[in-house]
Amino acid sequence: MIEIATKEGWREHVDTAYERPAPVTSEELRAMSFGDRALYNQGRAQYSQAGAFVRTPQFEAFQRAVRDRVMLNAYRRVGKLGLILSGEPGQGKTTSLVEIGRAHERRRRDTGHPAAGPGMLPVVYVAVPAQCSAKALMHEFARFLGLPVLGRMTYGDLLEAVSNALRRCSTELVLVDDVHHLDLKYRQNVEASDMLKQLSERCGGTFVYAGIAVEGTGLLDGSRGGQIGKRFEVHVALPFPLISTAEKARWGDLLLAMESSLCLAEQRPGSILSAAPTLHALTGGEIGLLKDLLQFAALSAMDDGTEKLDAAAFERDLARRQTAATLHTSKPRRSRTPASAA
């Protein structure tokens, strides 16, 4: 497993590309040896899980916003602009954040940009630990950058070392994940929030935050939050609705892209659309749940040799859930006999 919260792990993640396996027929699959078929199935699972990325309209809007701010911040000395990606669990926030950074770094490499030259780090990724102090968060930056942290180093020493390293490495994009852990009800988290602002002003990078329901953490409230709110644009990752014709079309496009990524030999392209309402009911339109559901279904299809998604199985799963929900809501509550009446 690649650990992307270090520069070595991040570089490996950016370097790694999982190619789509060559298509084969069911007959060719059956003719394979057990070992060859297992390797081929592993390649398909790896590609659908880590190699294929579905670009949704929400993601493309967010990526454009990041590109614009990277461009503008290169010429701003103070008041750097940033972005916040907020939403409930299962909306693909971390996946989107990491893909934004990966695509940016690969683009810099492809164009020979100085920020991607030898010894440079165009992108830095840090995840905020729970109940994080300013110094602990600074340690996470130092860990990514590979900076030595001595016991006698003060917060000021760490801030100076990290900001200098980010400038020397020409870092353009600083990705801060799990920012909901900076709940400003706790003083140490307030200090960590202030640290991010100081770091943003001392280096040239564009800061992009991602977290669960960031609007409710206090990060955008009060005098501190007022500054962040003016400079950071909030994008909210939402489930896919299924009401209007346009919304149904977007849901269908998502299903088609995911269907293709599964690489099933007998899956007729577009046949997944017949299960569109059922899949939406099962997942609530959440992209993370949909991806998991389809990948487990694809693994089952590989194992049993059918090599196609079982729409009837989705219907049965939905019926079971609806029955369970009905039984739960209709189950009578036990009445308690008062002790005095016993």
Results as ranks from 00 to 15, higher is better:
279 L>T: 07
241 P>T: 03
8 E>H: 15
121 L>V: 06
301 A>R: 14
5 A>C: 12
32 M>K: 00
87 G>L: 06
76 R>T: 05
316 R>D: 08
277 P>H: 00
228 I>K: 05
340 S>D: 14
83 L>A: 09
134 A>I: 02
75 Y>D: 03
238 L>D: 10
11 R>W: 10
225 G>A: 07
301 A>E: 10
82 G>Q: 06
240 F>D: 03
38 A>E: 07
175 L>D: 05
154 T>D: 04
66 V>N: 04
258 M>F: 15
241 P>E: 09
2 I>W: 11
204 G>Q: 08
203 C>Y: 07
110 D>L: 07
72 L>I: 15
65 A>C: 03
117 G>R: 00
318 L>V: 06
49 Q>C: 11
267 Q>Y: 05
172 E>M: 12
198 Q>L: 13
306 T>H: 04
61 A>T: 12
247 E>K: 02
219 L>I: 06
338 P>N: 04
310 D>Q: 00
140 E>P: 02
21 P>A: 05
159 L>N: 01
60 E>L: 15
317 D>E: 12
40 Y>T: 10
40 Y>R: 12
52 A>K: 11
239 P>H: 04
99 E>N: 03
229 G>Q: 04
2 I>E: 07
331 K>Y: 10
40 Y>M: 11
29 L>V: 06
142 A>V: 02
218 G>T: 00
339 A>Q: 09
236 V>K: 08
262 L>D: 01
109 R>I: 11
106 R>W: 03
291 K>A: 02
136 A>T: 13
332 P>F: 00
218 G>D: 00
146 G>F: 01
118 P>V: 13
187 R>N: 12
117 G>E: 04
212 I>D: 10
253 D>C: 12
118 P>H: 04
46 Q>S: 14
168 R>V: 08
303 D>R: 09
157 D>V: 07
226 G>L: 03
214 V>T: 07
156 G>N: 13
258 M>K: 15
237 A>D: 12
153 M>T: 09
78 V>R: 14
328 H>D: 13
33 S>F: 04
273 L>P: 02
182 L>T: 00
330 S>Q: 14
78 V>I: 11
187 R>T: 11
311 A>H: 05
241 P>N: 01
112 G>E: 11
171 T>M: 01
